[in-house]
Simulated assay, not measured.
Amino acid sequence: MNRYYEEEFKNKIVRLHLEEGRTLKSLSEEYGVSKSGISIWIKAYREECSTNHELK
């Protein structure tokens, strides 16, 4: 079953990983999101940053 997550929530999780160094495992356990889901969000964020220079 797919769950819907707000963009703000996804951005928070990505920020915690990239800026604060939180592990996927700890974020998954704390927020109840799969590690693979978080990985997808991180990949999408990095792709967005590489194409949209205003986010850098």
Rank of each mutant, 00 (worst) to 15 (best):
M1N: 15
M1P: 08
M1A: 06
N2D: 09
N2I: 00
R3D: 00
R3G: 00
Y4R: 03
Y5P: 06
Y5H: 00
E6G: 05
E6D: 08
E6Y: 14
E6T: 13
E6Q: 14
E7M: 05
E8M: 01
E8G: 03
E8F: 00
F9I: 07
K10L: 03
K10Y: 07
K10T: 02
N11C: 02
K12I: 06
K12V: 10
K12G: 06
K12M: 13
K12N: 04
I13E: 07
I13Q: 08
I13Y: 04
V14F: 01
V14G: 04
V14L: 02
V14P: 00
R15F: 03
L16T: 03
H17G: 03
H17F: 05
H17E: 13
L18I: 00
L18G: 00
E19V: 02
E19P: 00
E19Q: 15
E20D: 11
E20H: 14
G21A: 06
G21M: 14
R22I: 00
R22T: 09
R22S: 12
T23G: 11
T23W: 09
L24M: 07
K25P: 03
S26V: 05
S26Q: 13
L27Y: 12
S28R: 03
S28W: 13
E30R: 14
Y31R: 15
Y31A: 03
Y31K: 10
Y31M: 05
G32H: 09
G32K: 08
V33S: 10
V33D: 15
S34C: 10
K35T: 12
K35A: 12
K35V: 15
I38K: 06
S39F: 10
S39R: 10
I40D: 05
W41L: 01
W41E: 04
W41T: 01
I42H: 07
I42F: 07
I42G: 09
K43M: 09
K43H: 15
K43T: 14
A44G: 01
A44L: 13
R46D: 07
R46K: 12
R46S: 01
R46G: 03
E47L: 04
E47V: 05
E47K: 10
E48Y: 11
E48S: 01
E48D: 14
E48K: 12
E48G: 05
E48M: 10
E48L: 01
C49Y: 06
S50Y: 12
T51W: 02
N52L: 06
N52I: 02
H53W: 11
H53K: 12
E54C: 04
E54H: 12
L55A: 06
K56C: 02
